[in-house]
């Protein structure tokens, strides 16, 4: 299945790119999903932001992490052929080099999705409302 990779504004671009290239070169059948969604705790605000208005901070952090995500993806696409060629010549060392790779295998396919965090859990909210209605109904019984 796909590998999920979260990009935040405090991640180092160089380590993100290095990991992504290594993953895509060594896992030819697995897609890599880079995203800026908050982690499971929903916390994209760091301790150093205390005292700032939360919504403004969240919006600014989102803007910088989206910009970083796009830059990281551009670098990955640019560096991928080089990384693949180098990996391939390592694998066939002493065998005349990696001449068997076709040119299209150097291209990465890219699929973009833009959404809103609030859109992610509409069902969970409905369920919790139903759960509360059910609790009230049982209390009344």
């Amino acid at each position: 299945g796909p590998h999920l990779m979260r990009v935040t504004d405090h991640h180092k671009m160089r380590s993100l790119v290095r990991f992504a290239l290594e993953f895509l070169v060594t896992n030819p059948a697995r897609p890599l999903v880079l995203h800026t969604m908050p982690n499971s705790r929903g916390n994209i605000i760091t301790e150093s932001d205390q005292g700032e208005p939360r919504t403004r901070i969240a919006r600014e952090k989102c803007t910088t992490s989206v910009a970083k995500l796009i830059s990281v993806v551009e670098i990955i696409k640019r560096e991928f052929p080089k990384a693949l060629r180098s990996h391939s010549s390592d694998a066939t060392a002493g065998d005349g080099g990696g001449t068997s790779l076709s040119s299209e295998s150097f291209n990465l396919h890219q699929y973009n999705e833009i959404g809103c965090k609030e859109d992610l859990f509409p069902l969970a909210e409905e369920e919790s409302n139903e759960d509360r209605a059910e609790r009230i109904r049982m209390l009344l019984e």
């Binding site: 796909p2 992504a20 895509l24 030819p28 059948a29 897609p31 890599l32 999903v33 880079l34 995203h35 800026t36 969604m37 908050p38 994209i44 969240a58 919006r59 989102c62 989206v66 995500l69 796009i70 993806v73 990955i76 696409k77 295998s105 990465l108 396919h109 890219q110 699929y111 973009n112 999705e113 833009i114 959404g115 809103c116 965090k117 609030e118």
Partner: peptide
């Protein structure tokens, strides 16, 4: 909060196209 998701793949993914 808006988010962005970019999938990179060596093989085409018709479901995402």
């Amino acid at each position: 909060t808006p988010y962005m998701k970019i999938t990179l793949s060596r093989e085409p993914i018709p479901a995402l196209a």
